[in-house]
Design a protein around this nucleic acid. Structure first.
Lengths: 273, 273
DNA sequence: CAGTGGTCTAGACCACTGC
DNA sequence: CAGTGGTCTAGACCACTGA
């Protein structure tokens, strides 16, 4: 048997989804129905469905059935700073950007603490591993939905004795505060990776199966040294990151309202089995 | 039973991996062994292992056993252009950048064709959907390993009658050629998303389970309009994207040689179940 | 209530690996 | 060859949902 039976079933369902016979929101045939239709045991049918779940194509709902995943309109996060208005982190920049997009931002579970720097944090801040750092953690919502988690790390010698090491919001944003402290942010490096979520992320974002997260690690510098390291975690199904480099022609400078369909390799909609 | 048995087994194995009792490359106990140890059926054990596979933590090898996934040192892709040396695509920029990192670049399956623009491509190029576009597709290797796939789309009126619509490499890179054609690239927008791989990507990259791909969609502009749209696909387990914005202090300007451990939420190594 | 997916068992045969 | 994971069956009981 060159093609396992469960894969044939999965391919068949996939085809129906791709061709539109099953549209987003539609219910799949129940497991007993599929079992009958393909002359397979229920376990085999479940294997097929599991492979679709792992790719985020279908979502099971207890007592109801299994449904083709709905398409989500991604929110575009602009990560390149316009001149003069550097992008903040916990600060007002996020709130105003989201409001401008006609959506409602909230901030949850704001936590401030002192930790020993892990290897990756220490390397970015150019301090010895294990050194104390001030950590500010926040969880953001948009329109009541969990949208991103972020954690900022400040070198102790910069944050110590400032509002940064105390809980609560920073009046005009952390970047402004850092500048007043003599550490004007003049550059940053972003490092972007993607992976499957860990348990915390999975729970916070209510992620369905088959949805990775995008991690944006931003190291901010003043003229001499790193002044802050921030890790943003975004669920990949409802976010996309954007960088504008150079000056775009005026009419293309805005962000698209209605983003086109999510990227795939055009001309082949087939998914991995 | 608040905790299903298969999840308890998965959590237990996860703990052993996190705590180092099982290190990368180690073989897990065989399924019959686990079945015995946890007083569970083999199917239940397999359920537990499947959940670890879906997160890319373990890799099964037929006839040998199931092994803890090896760590991979990611290659850092610098996506921000330095002034004066705009980043190319199929061109020499990639080859020289990789060589500079002491690795061996190759290009596979170079394909050039004319297609009708899909919605997303048409929107980026600001042309009507279905319009003809010149498509150039390439697959890249580094050190013999599949590393990225890229597809560039050119508006017909720009590429027509030029080397762009013919197969083969462009002498000094496509950007230089575009400039000579009167379309100097002065800016671009990158849009970054992540998702699970489709079948083509899965096969080309030899992806283990639980590894997403990163898609970088770059729209390049001259002073007036979009002149090219490029979609890069990178496997997320061996690549990270980097943007430098502003001028970094000299000693921090280079890319890190030995990247630190992959990002997670520091202080909690637990993964989703 | 009947129907759905979630969990679990106890078997079976196969293909592949290293010895 | 014996041991591994890959596939598959035919049952069972449960928790959850909507009517």
């Amino acid at each position: 048997m060159p093609e396992p039976k469960y894969q044939r079933i999965a391919d068949d369902l996939l085809l129906q989804i791709d061709q539109g016979a099953l549209r987003p929101g539609d219910r799949l045939p129940s497991e007993p129905e599929l079992s009958e239709a393909y002359a397979a045991s229920r376990n085999t049918v479940r294997l097929a469905i599991a492979s679709l779940m792992n790719r985020g194509l279908v979502v099971p709902r207890q007592g109801l059935g299994t449904f083709v995943a709905e398409e989500i309109i991604p929110y575009t996060v602009r990560l390149s700073a316009e001149q003069g208005s550097q992008e903040g982190s916990q600060g007002g920049a996020y709130v105003s950007a989201v409001k401008m997009a006609g959506r409602n931002p909230e901030i949850l579970r704001f936590v401030v603490e002192v930790q020993h720097a892990a290897d990756d944090v220490a390397e970015r801040l150019d301090i010895p591993a294990g050194e104390s750092v001030v950590v500010r953690h926040a969880e953001r919502l948009i329109d009541g939905q969990p949208w991103s988690m972020l954690t900022s790390y400040y070198p102790m010698d910069i944050a110590s004795g400032t509002p940064l090491e105390r809980a609560g919001h920073i009046a005009h944003g952390a970047i402004r505060l850092l500048a007043e402290l003599g550490h004007e942010q003049i550059s940053y490096r972003d490092e972007i990776t993607a992976r499957m979520p860990d348990l915390t992320e999975y729970n916070f974002f209510h992620l369905p199966g088959g949805v990775p997260i995008i991690a944006v690690d931003r190291t901010a510098y003043d003229a001499q040294r790193p002044i802050r390291f921030t890790r943003h975690i975004y669920p990949a199904d409802r976010n996309r990151m954007a960088y504008d480099l150079g000056t775009l022609p005026d009419r293309y400078a805005g962000l698209p309202k209605q983003p086109p369909r999510p990227p795939g390799r055009p001309g082949s909609t087939q998914r991995a089995s």
